[in-house]
Write a protein that binds this DNA or RNA. Structure first.
Length: 272
DNA sequence: CGTAGCGCCTGCCGGC
DNA sequence: TGCCGGCAGGCGCTAC
């Protein structure tokens, strides 16, 4: 479900309800997520701890308590909501953090591809975070950097930008949308991109992600912001999910293909 | 090493 | 109405 914009919107939504409030209780109803949930460690180390910060690294949400970190990944179908503590439990409500603010932070994740992790050590050394490439809005993610990695790989450019080791946060929707904005065919081998292509793609990735965050993310079916409202970027999608519909620029029908087992959309006329 | 393909799960939708 | 295949916003593991 979530790519970087949806995760960022989730962080922004939950922050006021967590920051400077204490975690009063941790409830794990389903310990089998992508990795086993470290239930005992969570209960022992998070209970009665104040939340000092909520940050994001790639698609991971990091909740900081004194000298430890709770790390949450939403996988494909995960959703974090802020709810009154007496809200009835629904199917797939796997994890709760009760808060001194009177609310509960609740994870619902039907497909259980998400994760609840915990670490005491430095965040940068945490295995899942250690492998991640630069943040798309950081100085490290420059047009020059994109040129360098593109020149070294022959995989389709869409696969390259979706690989979190290249740059974090670009998932299946925004990869297609960024490539449309940059006028690049998603199937092009990464090393075939010119420097100018990379400059356009770099800018497109940043613009698409920033605009999606500003619109509250993309709701296709099950994503909602932490207050339950949908994201409004769906209306902005130019190619994703628009197979056989006319391109908004040139009216050629949008093509839908499978690329690396992921559905991929592009305009055969605008994207070369 | 880079790359391709599979599998983890549940839910939903369209076709028969 | 029910069954079945295919598909879904992510990502790690395996084999080559």
């Amino acid at each position: 479900m979530p790519e970087l914009p949806e995760v960022e919107v989730t962080c922004q939504g939950i922050r006021p309800y967590l920051l400077n409030h204490a975690i009063t209780q941790v409830v794990v109803r389903q310990p089998q997520l992508r990795w086993p949930v470290p239930t005992q460690a969570l209960k022992k180390h998070l209970t009665d701890q104040p939340v000092l910060a909520i940050t994001r690294r790639g698609k991971y949400i990091v909740i900081h308590v004194p000298s430890e970190h709770l790390i949450i990944h939403l996988g494909m179908s995960g959703n974090l909501r802020i709810l009154p503590q007496d809200t009835a439990i629904r199917k797939h409500d796997h994890f709760d953090c009760l808060l001194s603010s009177g609310y509960v932070l609740r994870l619902n994740d039907p497909r259980r591809f998400g994760a609840i992790l915990w670490t005491k050590g430095p965040l940068a050394e945490f295995p899942q975070l250690k492998k991640l490439g630069p943040e798309p809005f950081s100085a490290a993610f420059s047009a020059k950097y994109l040129q360098q990695i593109a020149s070294k790989h022959k995989v389709p450019i869409k696969a390259l930008i979706m690989n979190a080791a290249s740059v974090v946060g670009v998932g299946n929707i925004y990869a297609s949308e960024s490539l449309f904005m940059a006028k690049i065919n998603p199937q092009r081998p990464a090393h075939s991109l010119t420097d100018k292509d990379c400059v356009r793609l770099h800018k497109a990735i940043q613009k698409i992600l920033a605009n999606a965050i500003q619109k509250g993310g993309t709701t296709l079916k099950d994503f909602s912001q932490s207050d339950g409202k949908p994201g409004y970027f769906k209306q902005e999608l130019k190619v994703y999910g628009r197979k056989d519909e006319p391109c908004k620029k040139c009216h050629t029908n949008i093509i839908g293909i499978q690329l690396g087992q992921r559905s991929t959309y592009y305009c055969p006329s605008c994207q070369v």
